[in-house]
Design a protein around this nucleic acid. Structure first.
Lengths: 138, 138
DNA sequence: AAGTAGGTGCAACAGAAGTGCAATTATTGA
DNA sequence: TCAATAATTGCACTTCTGTTGCACCTACTT
């Protein structure tokens, strides 16, 4: 608990009760969560608060936003030394069509992409869809 | 004009005036278009018609849908022998942060991705964001 | 020409994202 | 300590995209 507070403070944001709870929840869940998911977990709180909390987390490098192609933005806790903004740190995301969960495959880096003349890459997003290990095993 | 009619018919859909116009427009534009873009180009027509036309086109392999991370779905005409549904034919998409246009880089195939044990890939989506050749040249 | 299937337009709705403002809570400094 | 100030939260509302239902029209079939 204290740990979470320190984490938040070290990233330069104030560790309010709400933020600590949301952070804790996201760490425990391990999968990428949509605003709606968090909303359902914290029905007592307002959607706007959760929304802005996620934005704050994102701006301060606590979570990164994932676009897994489902149309709704998802968020996942950044790894220890996650440099989401740097190309070499980008990992791929896997979305399971069966259980509908999205996970970060952090050990799988995105290979370097050769672009045509004149194109400059700033950001790469790679999403693989299919069946995850949990669902394929059954 | 006759050509377009034949193309549509060969894919099994009726070449109505509306469909021919939309198809022509998309071919000429060359970039991936959102429903809103097409809506603005055909203000006389209804959004629903355009929406359903795109759906029909998509179902019949005339266009493919692109998720370029902007949050709104885009559509682009399929190439001659575009097998959008097959993994080996998947090409990458480039979204320019400057002019906000998305293009298909059809000659750039997505490299094969090795997934962890138990994961089965069905679909891969790779979007590179940055500055396109037109914008970087100025 | 009548019947039927497909196409189009209008209205309306759902869900996500985002904004403005007022109320509350936390922090700071006299 | 306590007022002033800044940050956070909750509520109401708007916008945008995607989607569906229904009525009407158009085109093909027989």
């Amino acid at each position: 608990m204290r740990e979470i507070e320190e984490t938040l403070e070290s990233k330069g944001i104030r560790p309010t009760a709400m933020r600590i709870l949301i952070y804790k929840y996201m760490v425990e869940k391990e999968i990428a969560l949509a605003l709606t998911d968090i909303e359902n977990a914290f029905i007592k709180s307002d959607r706007t608060t959760l929304y802005r909390t996620l934005k704050t987390f994102e701006e301060n490098g606590i979570v990164h936003q994932i676009d897994d192609g489902t149309g709704t933005a998802k968020y996942a806790i950044c790894e220890e030394h996650c440099n989401c903004e740097l190309e070499q740190d980008l990992h791929l995301h896997f979305h399971c069509n069966s259980c509908d969960e999205t996970v970060c495959l952090t050990e799988h880096k995105i290979p370097h992409i050769n672009l045509p003349e004149g194109y400059k890459a700033k950001d790469v997003n790679l999403v693989v869809k299919g069946i995850c290990d949990k669902c394929s095993g059954q």
